[in-house]
Amino acid sequence: MSKYPTVSTVEVGDELPVMHKSASEAELFLYSAASFNPHRIHYDRAYANYEGHEDIVVHGPLQGSWLTQFITDWAGPEARLLSVEWQNRASAFVAEELEFSGVVTSIDRQSGSVELEIQERKHDGSLLMPAKATVRLAES
């Protein structure tokens, strides 16, 4: 049996396995380099403070890519991500412990697509990023 959910096994209310993320200074720098983004708030603490941030800021799109990873790790390689949307409500900072959680909210067994509601939260439980996604799961 597949270790991934399928159109026939998935149920509304299924929870995605919780994923933890945290980025060190070096990891944030690596993301700046890989995404060709020289914005100083992502590697220069003094400059981030000068712009009013309490510390080095985690890139919004990096959290977006963590979100897609959270979904595709659950759905498996044969599934297809059809859509995703998220809002960045607050800033995440270097070395902060972040947690992704999500749940299946609806299923269309005909097309195999399921809708998910996802949250990224800080350690204190405050909401950083509410998100929604649609994934087409493997048939079996």
């Binding site: 890519s65 963590w66 390689p77």
Partner: peptide, 25 residues
């Protein structure tokens, strides 16, 4: 470039790295 991005995110899904697994998927 794509693999560098995947490593930078920490998303090391085999379908980005192993062509046989990508075909199988």
């Amino acid at each position: 470039e794509a693999q560098r991005y995947a490593y930078a995110v920490g998303d090391v899904n085999p379908i980005y790295f192993d062509v046989d697994l990508a075909h199988a998927a």
